[in-house]
Every structure is written in structure tokens, then in C-alpha cells.
């Protein structure tokens, strides 16, 4: 029997969740949003999702093979990056744009740093921002939703945030009428990136992540909360120029960002306290960029900037260690 005895030191039992289960859990949580994307944007959405996912997995495998490392695509992290990338692309992104995004995400912003766990920036967001800067035309060619089987042809339009920004830039105030109301925004009946349209589907996925304890409440609550507060202050000061907080919440990439992008474990702070600081930073930057920046949307930039601040936040938000709290005997 001695040949079969394991001698590892304690502990001898372990929790159930492994890395691949966590990744798979996040993918499950994204399925409602993927479903809504395909429903509103049809076949092109499906093609983009598939291309991005297989692209990311393919690039990861190729990279690891080239570097003579074990291929770890089974951990699901590349597939997850692919889905997140697709959800950050416009519905009719050309195929080469999607594949280029996959390359940037996996090769440039993940594998070069040493692979999973070592990348300082969220790979899907790096890809989105690189594409946005390099190919502004293709990255901002939005189409109005054309629900599956509705027979409607996809027509070009602007995102709600884009409409608001343009109007404010041209006339100094918000447009008098917007396409769509809050109900449409909630369900996802508006123009935007694949994963940005339905707040409801994203919230459903976010709830699943919380219940499965894959994420904690800190980042989403701090992010959304600080956005609402800051946007609310501006709105109260001048409601004709600054959109109301609900509009901020339901349009653009905020939900996707706060629930799925900012909560990426690798690139966010490790303690609850740090995550609150980080979430508030994301919220403030998002509102400032949306209201005063050159781009209508600020979520990606805000999260990437806070990714950069993560090591610093981690350093200053360490837990109070046991035995350093003054208690009276």
C-alpha cells in the first residue's frame, strides 16, 4: 500500500470551485446577454460571437504552442475573453476587425505578459480601445436593432449616448426627443455594442455571478452607485445639458462594464475595500468622460485607467491584520 500513499501537507480537503468552473460560470452568466444580442441583431451578431470566441481560443493555443508551453485553453479563460470581446463590438463588425480584436486581446494584452493571471489590463477592453482608436469608422457604425424574423432591415443609427453627446456638442443641450424610452433601454431595444443593449439580461447574469459567489457586490455596487450619484449631481445642476442618472445606467456599456468587465478578477483589486475604491474610481471617470470627454462613452477608458491603478490600490487597502486591532483587555 505504501506505493499509493500521498504525503502532501495539510490541508487535505479543498473547496469545489476550480478555475475552469469559475470561467464557465461567467460564460453562463453572459448567455442571456448573448441571446438578446442575437435576437436584436440577428445573424451578424452570431457570426461576431463565434469568430471572437474561436479566434481567442485559437490565438491562445497557437501562442502557447509557439512558446512551447502547455496549452491551457481548457481553462475557459480565452473563450470568456472572446465572448466579452464580441459583446464589446458593434453588431456588424467586419470579420477582420473581430479577428484583429481577438489577436490584440489574447496575444498583445495577455500572452505577452505571461498569460492568465499576469495581464495588468482587461484583454477584451484593450482590444476594444485599440480598435476604436485605429478603426473609428468601423467601430462606431451602429445599426438599429432589427429583431429576428421581424423582416426589418438593419438601418444605421446612433447610440443614445452618441445622440446625447452630439446634441450637446452642437446645441449645448440634450436632444428634445430621443429614439426609444427607458423601457427600450432596459430590454435592449437600442443601438450599441452587442453586449451593451439589454441591461435586464446583464443584470440577470450579474445576479447569477453573485449567487454563485464568483464575484462579490463591491465593484458593481461601488461602480453603479458612484455613477448614479455623480451623474445625479450634474443632472440636478443642469437637467437640460446633462442626462439623468437612469439614462446613464441603462445606456452604453455601463452595465456590461460594471458587472462583467470591471469585475475581472485578474485586473481588479483583491480586497473588498480596494474593490470599493476601484469601483468608485471607475464610476467617477465614466461620468466625467461621458460628459466632458471627446468620446460619447467612457466605460472602457475608465476601467482601463483603474486597472492601471490596481496595484497601488492593493497596496493601500490591505486588510487590518489580526492582532493589530486595539482591543481592551
Amino acid at each position: 500500500m505504501s506505493s499509493q500513499l500521498y504525503l502532501s501537507s495539510s490541508p487535505h480537503v479543498y473547496a469545489g470551485d476550480r478555475t475552469e468552473q469559475i470561467m464557465r460560470g461567467v460564460i453562463y452568466a453572459l448567455l442571456p446577454a448573448c441571446g438578446v444580442a442575437v435576437y436584436f441583431f440577428g445573424l451578424p451578431a452570431l457570426v461576431t460571437l463565434a469568430l471572437a470566441t474561436f479566434g481567442c481560443v485559437g490565438f491562445e493555443a497557437a501562442c502557447q504552442k509557439a512558446m512551447k508551453q502547455p496549452v491551457t485553453v481548457k481553462d475557459g479563460s480565452a473563450a470568456l475573453t472572446g465572448i466579452l470581446l464580441a459583446l464589446n463590438l458593434p453588431p456588424n463588425a467586419p470579420w477582420w476587425l473581430t479577428l484583429l480584436g481577438a489577436f490584440v486581446a489574447i496575444v498583445i494584452s495577455k500572452q505577452i505578459y505571461g498569460g492568465l493571471g499576469y495581464n495588468p489590463f482587461n484583454p477584451a477592453l484593450v482590444a476594444r480601445v485599440v480598435l476604436l482608436i485605429s478603426f473609428p469608422v468601423q467601430m462606431t457604425r451602429w445599426t438599429a436593432p432589427a429583431p429576428l424574423f421581424s423582416g426589418i432591415d438593419a438601418v444605421s443609427t446612433a447610440t443614445p449616448l452618441g445622440q446625447a453627446k452630439e446634441s450637446v456638442m452642437l446645441t449645448g443641450s440634450l436632444p428634445s426627443s430621443m429614439q426609444g424610452g427607458m423601457g427600450d433601454f432596459l430590454l435592449g431595444n437600442m443601438a450599441g455594442c452587442l453586449g451593451e443593449v439589454s441591461a435586464l439580461a446583464l443584470l440577470l447574469g450579474g445576479a447569477y455571478l453573485l449567487v454563485r459567489r464568483i464575484i462579490t457586490w463591491h465593484i458593481p455596487v461601488a461602480y453603479l452607485g458612484s455613477t448614479v450619484v455623480l451623474a445625479g449631481i450634474f443632472w440636478l445642476v443642469d437637467g437640460s445639458r446633462y442626462p439623468d442618472p437612469l439614462f446613464h445606467l441603462l445606456t452604453g456599456g455601463l452595465m456590461l462594464g460594471a458587472l462583467f468587465m470591471a469585475t475581472d478578477m485578474v485586473t481588479s483589486p483583491i480586497t473588498g475595500r480596494g474593490q470599493i475604491v476601484y469601483g468608485i474610481g471607475c464610476g467617477i471617470l465614466t461620468v466625467l468622460i461621458r460628459l466632458f470627454g471627446g468620446y460619447p462613452e467612457g466605460v472602457s477608458f475608465a476601467i482601463l485607467l483603474m486597472n492601471a491603478a490596481t496595484p497601488l490600490i492593493d497596496r493601500y487597502t490591505q486588510p487590518t491584520k489580526f492582532g493589530y486591532v486595539e482591543t481592551k483587555a
Binding site: 473547496a15 478555475t19 469559475i22 491551457t72 481553462d75 498569460g115 492568465l116 493571471g117 499576469y118 462579490t216 478578477m265 485578474v266 481588479s268 483583491i270 480586497t271 473588498g272 486588510p319
Partner: peptide
């Protein structure tokens, strides 16, 4: 595998 920085060890400690 590599550390995911998931924070579970920190929360449990």
C-alpha cells in the same frame, strides 16, 4: 494554475 487574484484566500484568511 496561475493565481487568478480571485481574492478567495484573502477573504477566508
Amino acid at each position: 494554475g496561475p493565481c487568478l487574484r480571485c481574492g478567495r484566500c484573502v477573504r477566508a484568511c
